[in-house]
Nucleic acid binder design. Structure first.
Lengths: 343, 343
DNA sequence: TACGGTGATGTAACCGCTTACGGTGAAACG
DNA sequence: CGTTTCACCGTAAGCGGTTACATCACCGTA
């Protein structure tokens, strides 16, 4: 591993000049700059990032906070891969790397977990991370609030947070839900139910709100018994659907706040002898891969999956360079009409 | 941010002693050790990892090489999330972090991509990474070979590599394929076809081998026209199935080398008016989430998804501490019998 | 009493890079 | 011709740890 000093000696200049060539070009003579660059390339010089970080007190790394919630072991992020791709490539474009922080302590007390946000913040300081990206693992709004308050630049995904240098990016959940429900109303349905996510979850609440708005739009009454809570998991969709079907006046259409639950609802409907979409129309949310595969294929609300990551990257970079807080980002959603609503 | 020096002053000792408390306990007096520890805790001392890495020439980070192949944009890893969970938690337990390296260059020439393995290796040196974990993005065996030869400790997933400090983790693809095919034979099928993955892919080749072995086991002839190549994607499964159904003597059972292709095959069979499993038995590979959801639910070969990550973590840690090469790890596979084979 | 051994700690060099500061020589100016 | 300006570059002081080596007090032993 060649160092700056070696380059300097070979070029007959000082290490300071070598450093300047890379960090403040323009302050160095064209000839020497070229010479340094050439030698550096020949030797395959790679600046030592540790030394650089030590000196500048900042690294080119951004922390990724993503814990699998122990209370919800089976939780799968609806589109983790797309998210990571978007995030990573957007950060890459600015020379930043993503550091997936250790999440469980060991003997040396290295580690952090959502249960202990301080651990993550400590890691941030240790490594001079520029900031943190928080991926919702299900229901940790409280923990995220702690991050946001810590003063570390951070952007949360799908969780509204507030703090001196915090912001978030989320989908237009209300709008999406409104579109979905409105679509059902437009098809002539008047008895439209919804299966919601966990009440503590912000996107979940927004989707309920969008559902309500759409009912108003269509001049339909809001019936409390048509709002059943699930937890985004499939089985909760099944249970909720069974509950709805047991009503005196069961709905003819259901908007489920996640595709997983929509699939669960679909199974329940099928088990009850109902044909979808003939007897019951179903719309989901997320547009996960499964949505296109079930029988009938699920009409659903699609989110801008890679856009999520890209927006998060932009936001965190903006908060690192600028020193204030950024405005939250709300990404548009899109209704994907397939077969399950019988349009 | 308190530094070691501050701790030292408050405790009336030298920085060397503070450092020793953390790195060579036992060489320092019990009393002072305790005192230092207490003060460190009070101040919330976090050792500066950059300084530490600079001094020791090693960091607690491991690089993750995971590019989305531009030649196969739609590629989705069958179980990225489980893999990452396993990898991350196993590394965490030893105080290591995962660094997702930047993959595309920018103006400052920061970056790396599979097309340029050197870039990744350079990043490894810059950050003093302990090693690299290579996640197969579809078909980059050549690039992976370059990593393995570079001398950087690295472990590849699902790609057999060889190098001074390289090893790999893979599933027992041959065994799984043999089980799957054997299961079909056991059900009385004699005309068993297979839809393979891309020929350049090692797991793909192993699965074909397992298929062949199972035919031998059952005393069935190996018929070349029953081996059709796909590319792991769904549509290729559909195309392959159509080809198989067009044969004079079409198969009554198919082993697809991926669940995606199995689903594609299923769609083709359905389109051709065949009932699965009555007219055609299908078995897949991977046990992705969709497998349990399609109609009929897919019999498939399950891999030890989190085990993959854990094994990779173990392997890379072993290669970092030890200085030689580790033996490849082959994880057992498991046949998950559902409905698509009609057992 | 002198001496070697031992445990605990301090001293200082070093890791590789950044950057404030000051110096140099040439060009520009009065 | 003296002085100012400016582009360019070297000097050196960090950044915050680690660790080889030196130091020192203290003990047991000859």
């Amino acid at each position: 591993m060649p160092t700056g000093r070696e380059i300097a000696q070979l070029c007959g200049v000082s290490v300071a000049t070598v450093s300047r060539v890379f960090n403040q070009p323009g302050t160095v003579n064209e000839d020497t700059r070229e010479r340094v660059l050439r030698v550096a390339k020949e030797l395959g010089y790679q600046p030592n990032e540790s030394a650089r970080a030590l000196s500048t007190k900042q690294s080119t790394m951004i922390g990724l906070v993503w814990d699998t919630d122990h209370r919800r072991p089976g939780w799968r992020h609806p589109y983790l891969q797309d998210l990571l791709i978007g995030l990573k490539s957007a950060l890459s474009a600015h020379g930043y790397h993503l550091l997936m922080l250790a999440t469980s302590g060991d003997a040396r007390e290295v580690g952090a977990s959502l249960a202990d946000p301080v651990g993550y913040v400590n890691m941030t300081r240790r490594h001079h991370l520029g900031g943190l990206v928080l991926i919702d693992s299900g229901s940790d709004a409280e923990a995220f609030a702690a991050f946001a308050q810590s003063g570390v630049p951070c952007v949360a995904l799908d969780v509204a947070v507030d703090g001196p240098r915090a912001t978030y990016v989320t989908s237009d959940n209300a709008g999406g839900a409104r579109m979905a429900t409105g679509h059902l109303a437009g098809l002539g349905h008047t008895r439209i139910a919804t299966i919601t996510g966990p009440p503590g979850n912000q996107p979940s609440r927004d989707r309920v709100a969008g559902y309500r708005t759409a009912l108003q739009d269509a001049g339909l009454p809001a019936r409390d018994e048509y709002v059943v809570a699930g937890d985004f998991y499939r089985t909760s969709g099944t249970v909720a659907m069974q509950r709805l079907l047991a009503l005196d006046d069961p709905p003819t259409a259901v908007f489920a706040a996640s595709d997983e639950m929509a699939v669960g609802a679909l199974l329940a409907a099928r088990a009850a002898g109902l044909r979808v979409p003939h007897d019951l129309a179903i719309v989901g949310f997320d547009d996960i891969e499964v949505a296109a595969l079930v029988e009938p294929a699920l009409t659903t609300v699609a989110q801008d999956k890679p856009g999520f990551g890209v927006a998060a990257a932009k936001a965190i970079l903006a908060m690192i360079t600028g020193s204030g807080r950024e405005d939250p980002v709300v990404l548009p959603t899109r209704l994907v009409v397939r077969e399950s609503c019988g349009s």
